[in-house]
Design a protein around this nucleic acid. Structure first.
Lengths: 139, 139
DNA sequence: GTTATTGCAAAAACTTTGCATAATA
DNA sequence: TATTATGCAAAGTTTTTGCAATAAC
């Protein structure tokens, strides 16, 4: 059922109720939550789960490369569990909602209608990520 | 000298010492600062400038469309004054530094050597921005 | 002189940390 | 049982807000 949990188990991740619930909240979702939203959803199933644990768990999932931290121009970071699938993001400039889109072809041409999910798309940005010369010198 | 200031004056922007200094710090720079860094650099020239004013001014420049708010997976947002020039971003995953790159051709192919500025580039992401159905219904 | 902007200080929003307790393997 | 994760509460960052004082037009 859960791709994510299965992979984590395989990697010797210590499985606790809290971690399972966090993983289940994230697993496979194509609309991404902030840490606080993950906490709220996790707490529906496990009321005593603490914010600190949610933050810890999310941080670990990110280090393990199972989840991607996405931050937009909104306030809080959001967590994307689809690290292993190639995809792009569709971000709402007003409320910060993020959802995944999959596309083929030139990214700079218009997003195909079926991949717009009702958004009025106004902008495309391309970002390259890596290590800057200063940081690679320090290491 | 300052493209940005000239445009703002033309748009009837009330020009104060604080605003001028903030605009001068940003103007044309291709390495982008956080609000706090902008404040520090502005304070070198105008020691009494407050953080609140810097935040206000940056927020306004963003609403005017003169500056773009860029947030990465680091903590604080950064401000990009090159809103009128087509460009992409090169982000350091370790320290959060952002610099502009200009490229022609397919964005998903490797970034040309002269546009790498010494970075070890490991990832490219494409993001679409717009208004989601919920937000456009509310408006 | 009017009106919009500033600075201050306090609070809000988001995230991290230390340490005693508790649960996993 | 040895080890690692949890929860709490406190503190750290980053950003926003209210309002009296101030400066631009």
């Amino acid at each position: 059922m859960s791709d994510l949990l299965e992979r984590l188990r395989g990697r010797g991740w210590r499985l606790t109720a809290q971690r399972r619930v966090v993983a289940e909240v994230l697993d496979g979702d194509h609309v991404h939550y902030t840490a606080d939203e993950v906490h709220a959803r996790a707490a529906e199933r496990l009321p005593e789960i603490s914010r600190a644990t949610v933050y810890n768990t999310l941080g670990e999932l990110v280090s393990l490369g199972e989840v991607i931290e996405v931050s937009t121009d909104g306030r809080a970071k959001r967590y994307d569990p689809n690290a292993h699938h190639d995809h792009q993001h569709l971000v709402c400039s007003r409320c910060g909602t993020i959802r995944d889109v999959h596309l083929q072809g030139d990214p700079l041409s218009a997003l195909p209608e079926p991949e717009r999910y009702g958004f009025q798309v106004s902008e495309v940005t391309v970002t390259y990520r890596g290590i800057c010369p200063t940081c690679s010198a320090d290491s």
